[in-house]
Design a binder for these strands. Structure first.
Lengths: 330, 330
DNA sequence: CTGTTAGCGCGTTCAC
DNA sequence: GTGAACGCGCTAACAG
């Protein structure tokens, strides 16, 4: 077995040049004669040399690392965004370091410390609870999805959740529903609250009673919230969930109660995660363009790191009609 | 705004000691007088000093980083394992660097290069296609789930997929099913093939015809495979899918065809991902103890890094009966 | 074009 | 106990 990690000095010796020249060849920092280039390349090949990012980082002061702070690797919403973002970054010199905050502020702060220590050159926030205080003095660009960040080097990608929620609620009302429960959550960020606002606005405008229960943005909470909803409002005909996972949980509750979807109760979700199209019945939901979001974040990241101002992408939240809503007699 | 990253020298100056002493205090490398300890700690506090992992790594030759190579951040199976593993590592000095291989061998090899360059001290493989060749000369411990790795520092966590698949097939047969299709996949690793083997064995022993179609371990492939299954074997009464996502896809196909689950067709999955319990009807499936797997990998990682031999955890694949299988007249 | 020199920020000898 | 000096692997500035 060859030595684990040959150094630039060994390559230089083998190629009969100086370490600096090896560096120049590898980085294209300056012109080097044909023969030496060849010699270096050959030595690199033979030794299986790969420069140490650690040493490079130390020497240049650059890390080419970008930090990505997300709630949870297990999330069917943020996971795919992270996936798309990672893919988008692949063609760049930048490498993502993803750290989960596990839905806890202290963990998020720890994760932030970790990323800071690793000298990430930019930070992407995916649905965290971090606010300006912790981020203000960071000195690096901060991008965010689903939450607003402020500052000179800040950029956030926010879709109009309130409008989308308003329209989803209207969609139900247009199909004759009047007793509509919204399953919101205290967890989550601004976007969840905006959905609640959109729902309230639609209900208020229609002169209808707002019925709100709270889950935790996961299936289990959706189940419990649905139970509470029907305990408090037995005559409910439609459920509008703050996200799809919540809708799935509610769906199971309805199933267990013998309530059919959509015959007895209509159901609308939010996010359109991969599995929503495969629910029974396929879930009508507000689609967040997950892949496009990841790509947009990746592009914005590149722009910001190049010192440019990212152009805001045209991303819309749109209701995708599937089969979980039915028209009721008015 | 304070300077972005104070160095150990600045701390030393402020505390009126030498950099070496600061290092000693922070690492507990040697005894230091009370007062200097206090002075150093205070200076650290005031400056908000945090040692640079880069510099530390360079100086010590250690990175405290462990590489985690997984197929895809968006996977509802590997995502949660990664989450549990990350959580388990939190109390250790080691930090995970997760890199997706995007189901492609070249990408996996690139990812491997990346991790190698970053001097990870160990590697965890989560369902990759990497084989011994690429890993042999790595010189660091390699742990794997769902695939076998060889070598002195290798450790793999393999559950008995063949047995579990055998039993799942038997389970269907015990309920009167004889025309059982297995939806396998050419994608994926050894575990998927073992499930196929288990299915075949059960069918052969019962003198039944093996009916195998292939998906891609995701919903879409499951849908198409189910379509193919019923085209080729119209009288099929039960589907055993190689993983839950495949089962979801198949489920949608059945729904669209007006075939009820479980009244017309029984369905069994594999993995028991979070959403399986929330399917309609709740999916009967072979449970992989996802969280325990993540934890076991984390523990094994710690053991290996401490130079110990990990004790193989007692993890079993067990069929969880829910509501997607029914008894048919024999 | 190319080799030599000087750090990047830290841990670690080795003397004091 | 403690500080000065050296080296980790690499790039950048400076001479030639």
């Amino acid at each position: 077995m060859t030595k684990a990690h040959p150094t630039i000095a060994e390559v230089a010796r083998r190629a009969g040049v100086s370490p600096a020249t090896v560096s120049r060849v590898l980085n294209g920092t300056a012109r080097v004669s044909q023969e030496k280039v060849r010699a270096v390349l050959q030595a690199v090949e033979e030794l299986g040399y790969a420069p140490s990012p650690l040493a490079q980082g130390l020497a240049t002061g650059r890390s080419y690392a970008v930090g990505i702070l997300l709630s949870d690797f297990a999330s069917p919403f943020f996971g795919p965004i992270l996936e798309a973002l990672t893919l988008e970054l692949e063609a760049t010199p930048y490498r993502p370091i993803a750290v989960p905050g596990h839905w806890s502020l202290v963990r998020e702060l720890e994760a932030l410390e970790f990323l800071k220590a690793h000298r990430v050159e930019a930070l992407v926030l995916l649905g965290t609870a971090l606010d300006g205080e912790a981020l203000g003095e960071l000195g690096i660009p901060v991008l965010a999805f689903g939450q607003r960040v402020e500052g000179p080097k800040a950029w956030s990608l926010c879709l109009d959740n309130q409008k989308a929620a308003y329209e989803a609620t209207r969609y139900l009302m247009d199909r004759g529903h009047t007793r509509i429960v919204h399953v919101s959550s205290h967890r989550g960020g601004m976007d969840v609250r905006e959905r609640l606002l959109g729902y309230r606005k639609a209900m208020r405008e229609a002169g209808l009673e707002a019925r709100v229960v709270y889950g935790d943005l996961e299936e289990e909470g959706g189940y419990r919230a649905a139970a509470e909803a029907f305990r408090r409002y037995p005559d409910t005909t439609a459920l509008f969930a703050a996200n799809d996972q919540t809708a799935f949980g509610a769906r199971l509750y309805l199933y267990e109660q013998g309530l059919r979807v959509p015959e007895d109760v209509s159901l609308v979700g939010f996010d359109d995660i991969a599995l929503s199209a495969y629910q029974i019945p396929p879930l009508t939901t507000v689609r967040q363009p997950i892949q496009e979001i990841g790509i947009a974040l990746g592009r914005a990241l590149r722009a910001v790191l190049a010192g440019e101002v990212p152009t805001p992408p045209r991303l819309e939240l749109t209701l995708v009609e599937r089969a979980s809503v039915r028209e009721v007699g008015a």
